[in-house]
């Protein structure tokens, strides 16, 4: 039983946490792709930027959240989401829009987004240094221990994780309602389906593009902040996020927001399961195993230092066997 709790804490909880983060990042990537038709490589850095803005705001007003009983970082989220969205829209206007107007190939947009990646990385590290920093400034992370009868090991879940699950659920439901009910949300899907016809129907495509950046920027801020709140803010966050969120978006079928959510959880759980040491679960069976079968201490599929291999392997597998993704994305 203890082993099962261990499994729950280290796989179910951890996998859900990573899954939520990747899903929110991948939704942004997939939305930008479906409206603007290019892979936006600076997205992981937008997640970092959002978290960094929250860090700055939290440092400036460390006790803003006390009266609400929430971590200050959470209270600062809306402000940071607005700021990051503005930055995203600004980057689009200054850097991407002129290239679009020139009618460049998508690959040039990709290189431009790599340029934006470097700019954002440089800026963030210029001001933050390179060390890790907790988003709990002058406060402590609450950790919930749930004791089950008959087991010694408690289920452990932290406050940021609970907030993350709630926020992800709200964000996903909100996005779903927006895309299926709101006039602009439907227009967004229409533009992703057929941009020329959307224009010919009188849909304001500029507005839709702005809206896309706002949604993607806000989700990026949410994901980046909640990840940093759970662990710590690191300026090289984007390095660990880039490959998984793209793998998630591609697994789900590029241009397919619900696919991105599924892809995010798939990649998140695959990573967690791959680095999980399975010999812990098999330990109770050790005595009943035949003597010739010696159980190694380390039965993890890959070491944590090779975690990056997991999303890459998933990516390659999808590209080889099903390039349109599990949910039939738009374009190969």
């Amino acid at each position: 039983m203890n082993e099962l709790i261990y499994f729950f804490n280290y796989v179910v909880v951890a996998g859900s946490v990573t899954g939520c983060i990747y899903a929110m990042g991948a939704i942004g990537v997939t939305l930008i792709y479906s409206i603007l038709r290019f892979a936006h490589f600076a997205h992981a850095d937008m997640m970092t930027l959002g978290a960094f803005v929250v860090l700055l705001l939290t440092l400036a007003f460390p006790h803003a959240g006390d009266s609400l009983g929430l971590p200050t970082a959470i209270v600062m989220l809306p402000l940071a989401m607005i700021f990051t969205s503005l930055v995203a829209v600004g980057i689009d206007r200054v850097f991407y829009q002129p290239l679009r107007a020139h009618g460049v190939k998508p690959i040039v947009m990709v290189i431009a987004s790599l340029g934006v990646t470097l700019m954002l990385q440089g800026l963030i590290r210029l001001f933050s240094g390179t060390g890790a920093e907790s988003l709990y400034v002058e406060a402590r992370k609450a950790i919930f221990r749930i004791e089950l009868p008959g087991v010694t090991r408690p289920i452990i879940i932290t406050e940021p994780q609970v907030i993350l699950f709630v926020v992800t659920l709200v964000a996903v439901i909100g996005l779903h309602l927006f895309l299926t009910r709101a006039r602009l949300g439907k227009a967004m899907r229409a533009m992703s389906d057929n941009p020329d016809l959307a224009r010919a129907s009188g849909i304001n495509t500029k507005l839709i593009i702005t809206l896309t950046w706002v949604i993607a920027g806000s989700l990026a801020t949410l994901a980046g902040t909640l990840l940093s709140l759970d662990v710590a803010f690191k300026p090289d966050l984007s390095f660990f996020l880039l490959l998984p969120i793209f793998a998630a978006a591609i697994v789900g079928g590029v241009g397919h927001p619900y696919g991105a959510i599924a892809g995010g959880f798939l990649v998140g759980f695959a990573e967690t399961l791959a680095v999980f040491n399975w010999s812990v679960l098999l330990r109770p069976l050790r005595d009943s195993l035949p003597s010739w079968l010696e159980l190694p201490n380390n039965l993890a599929l890959v070491g944590t230092e090779y975690k990056i291999v997991v999303p890459f392997f998933i990516l390659i597998a999808v590209l080889v066997w099903r390039p349109t993704g599990l949910f039939k994305g738009k374009v190969i």
Binding site: K186, R189, A190, S192, D193, N194, D196, L197, A198
Partner: peptide, 8 residues
């Protein structure tokens, strides 16, 4: 051609 929004 392409005169509808297929996924809508």
């Amino acid at each position: 051609e392409k005169n509808i929004f297929p996924s809508l």
